[in-house]
Design a binder for these strands. Structure first.
Lengths: 356, 356
DNA sequence: CTGAAAGCGCTAACAA
DNA sequence: TTGTTAGCGCTTTCAG
């Protein structure tokens, strides 16, 4: 008899043992029908006599029957859940996207499991593996890295519906939703060049992150298209936290030949740059011009306000969910890639420089 | 023979059918051992001959065996997951707490499932029901409402480990981690009173939310302790979004007798109030003094900076996880309630008023 | 050291 | 209309 009470490693644990919840079997017994009939009544399919159905429902209510999704999932193959793996849940961009995904997912009867990779590739692997092992229906992922993505390739190969957001991996055959990072960055830098700036600094993430790489490309392309040199001393790499961005900015401005303008690749970086500049007594845009990728609350609070490259953040989550649901429903078209354009919002943080 | 391929509602769906993943059975077959032996080798318990074990591991690797958590969960009773139900994932307070919980949970081999209630009681019920049906180990919840919490009471009664954060329900017998909302609010308002203010406005959430209720109590207590009247026209209720807070602030200042100071109950409200005041051409603190509950990035970006009541945000998540894990491990002490003190950070947004 | 078999809770094909 | 039964993938006794 394998009938020992499970999970009794230590005696004291038994005290708090969760009350065994009521199962279909209990309900069926209470209603004097078979498990099959009870299940039919509970889930409303097939033929059930109205008398029997009523008894079942009554018993279920009385016993507090709730159903066990894990068992259902084991039986049916998957859980009505989609996973979202953002790079960092604290970044307002991802928080907003997470919220939008949540709303859209809920609208189609799915729960959302958010698991942040914290920009750590190893962690991302573990999380995706977890989600997969849980048999979620599909996943929306902002990959932490542009390289070493065999784990993603494998998931795709195995048929798990996946939609990439924000960071596209060209060689991965799955849908993606992102913005024109290269174009946006190029526009930002060209805006600075058009205002006479020549020493333009870049504060960016590790180029392992795809968006950082693309925005760097935009920066370089803009410079080269205008015959300006790419000076490595003007490029600061920092992880995307306010404190790191502060340090990077200070380093940048501790050099003999200071930049006259700064382009920051996300709103966290922009926040850090603003704080650093202020602490160094540099006024924007009098001493330094500033333009940031991604619009954010703070951008309109400074005086003057900050010029930014805005992304249509609110469109990303809902579209990603729609695409994912298509795949979950079995759509087998070739991968679709959507790239939204960005938009330069000119505020007051860029000044005109007159060349000698 | 119930051997029909499942899930073939429509023929085209079959095309994309997820590749059936390899099971212990496959591995066992490939290694020429029984399922039991394979399981033993895979999970490293019991006696397994080293030759057999090696064959199993090799076969598992070759076949790409990954394990099925759902089945494990069904067998073992629960999933190594904890759930977090914040009021609103976009609120930076909850985003930070979510991040902290994530880190702490991961440290103890648990995944985190974040499901935001969006301050909707009905939604919260559905989400908690989902989590419960998934057999998660425990949940950390910021209840959307101070009333109508039978759903929570029931979960607790059934033995699901639950820790409340930010918003404590006194009559619910479970652990909680929060801050001294009443005391913090009182200190804020007393600070304003000490600076000579008499017409002090409050911008707050619906009092259905426990923190809003407690902070309102602090506001009222401070006024009464100082012999000041509570004027309903000075109390604006708004849901916690920037736009709603803007509207509420404008309404407040459209009255004949304007307040000389404003106390906002969270950082989103504070952001909204700042935007509204600026749009009305009112300078802080020249025309209006301002103090907000909860410190946030923006508070140090305005000129002058904003005086706030700071909470030890970083301590809440980790402690909640620790308490939850205790319960999961079977701790059966009576409920523990932790309340952190708040701290007034005086910056420049409160001016002294000289009475006539 | 290994294998057979039971059973977690649920659903659904099939028989009655 | 209802009941019987198989089985999802896994772990774990118990008997070899």
């Amino acid at each position: 008899m394998a009938g020992l009470p499970r999970s009794c490693r230590k005696p004291e644990e038994a005290l708090l043992a969760r009350k065994k919840s009521t199962t279909v079997k209990d309900v069926a017994a209470a209603a004097n029908v078979s498990r099959a009939t009870a299940a039919r009544a509970l889930n409303g399919y097939g033929y059930v006599g109205s008398a029997a159905a009523e008894r079942v429902l009554e018993a279920a209510a009385r016993l507090g029957y709730r159903g066990n999704r894990v068992a259902q999932a084991l039986r049916q193959g998957d859980l009505p859940i989609i996973g979202f793996v953002p790079g960092d849940i604290q970044n307002p961009f991802f928080a907003k996207v997470a919220h939008d995904i949540d709303v859209a997912a809920r609208g189609s009867q799915h729960s959302l499991l958010i698991a942040s990779s914290e920009e750590d590739l190893e962690q991302e692997r573990a999380l995706l593996d977890n989600l997969r092992a849980l048999n979620v229906r599909g996943m929306i992922v902002a990959p932490a890295s542009g390289k070493d993505n065999q784990h993603l390739a494998r998931l795709v190969r195995e048929g798990t519906p996946i939609v990439l957001i924000d960071r596209v991996l060209e060689d991965l055959p799955c849908d993606s939703v992102a913005v024109d990072n290269e174009g946006g960055a190029r526009e930002a830098v060209e805006h600075l060049i058009a205002h006479g700036h020549r020493r333009i600094a870049l504060i960016q993430d590790d180029t392992r992150i795809v968006t950082a790489r693309d925005r760097l490309a935009g920066y370089i392309n803009a410079l080269q298209a205008n015959g300006l040199p790419v000076d490595q001393r003007l490029i600061a790499v920092s992880s995307s936290t306010v404190q790191h961005a502060i340090d990077a900015t200070i380093r940048l401005f501790s050099q003999p030949e200071r930049p006259t303008a700064v382009f920051t690749v996300d709103s966290v970086m922009t926040t850090g740059a603003l704080l650093a500049l202020r602490s160094m007594g540099l006024a924007v845009p009098r001493d330094v011009s500033l333009i940031g990728f991604d619009d954010f609350d703070l951008a309109t609070f400074t005086d003057p306000q900050i010029t930014v490259i805005a992304q249509p953040v609110g469109k990303i989550g809902p579209l990603a969910v729609r695409m994912l649901l298509d795949r979950i429903r079995g759509l087998s078209e070739p991968p679709r890639h959507v790239r939204f354009p960005t938009r330069l919002i000119s505020r007051g943080s860029v000044s005109r420089i007159f060349l000698p």
